[in-house]
Design a protein around this nucleic acid. Sequence first.
DNA 1: TATTGTTATACTCTATAACTATA
DNA 2: TATAGTTATAGAGTATAACAATA
Lengths: 166, 166
Amino acid sequence: MPDEAVLMECAHSIIDVVPRLTRLMSKDLRLHSSGLFTSSQFRVMVRLFREGPQCLSRLAEYMGVSLPTMSKLVPGLESRGLISRHRDPQDRRRVLLALTDAGVEAYTSLLECTESHIGEWISHLSPAECHDIVAALAILDQAFAQVELPESYEAEDCSASREEVA
Amino acid sequence: MPDEAVLMECAHSIIDVVPRLTRLMSKDLRLHSSGLFTSSQFRVMVRLFREGPQCLSRLAEYMGVSLPTMSKLVPGLESRGLISRHRDPQDRRRVLLALTDAGVEAYTSLLECTESHIGEWISHLSPAECHDIVAALAILDQAFAQVELPESYEAEDCSASREEVA
DNA sequence: TATTGTTATACTCTATAACTATA
DNA sequence: TATAGTTATAGAGTATAACAATA
């Protein structure tokens, strides 16, 4: 198989599998948090926990969402006392977000719970298989992290996607 | 490292990486289809293309969404002539969905386009790395396919997720 | 003038509950 | 009675455009 075909096979596999994994995890999170946390909210907390306090723009960039989207995502967590929001004294345009103590606790608990569910799902795998999965995901993550999506693709790029019946 | 720790490390990696991959792919799809297709619509087309005509319930089950959600997802594709909807003569409660010719064409084009973008993102990987990724995703897919989410988790399961400030 | 963030508006995805039609 | 699907309603996530405040 030529290298090009290998790449396409890999791309196909990613398209096929990855969204299905995400959906199941989202559903599990919603279920086991009794509807209190969505994936997006959880990911905000993940980021704040790991990287510490930061401003809206940086969070939005990391999550790959627009600034208004991020701006609307935050109040739901703030109103429950899980994150705090303060003007940055250095640059008063910025808003610094941070996990509160309650936020850290909720995050930790959610993470452990999600990990334990997923751990059960993959409990029949061998250590070697787990290791391979971690390695594969790391490679993918690094590759995707370097992608810069264009503002919009040229019309020529995927012309047939615009051929649908009116 | 004990087996348990390996499982948790793997679970952690999945939680961390997989949603980020999905988000980038969704964004790319939206961009390169000029906003005409969402991930969910695309996944419906993927399924219909591979498995042929089938009823709403089966589609909903595969996608992991509720029947009303699926029911609302379909008109957007039908109104553009990409899928057809017919009563099943054998069981008149059922509605059979199928890709139209235009739907097949749009799907094929979208798939190729998405594959080619992702192919570029991972173009620096070696064939061996690609192979490892395909294998890892296959294992994960199979493991996740066997998961049956409960109606709701017991309160004891993730109690701290309900400790947030009122 | 450029950047940060919010508000207004609109659309999609999602769910639950209540309903109709069919088996 | 049980199943397939729709409709009604509600809430979250998403975007673009227009705006205010700050640098």
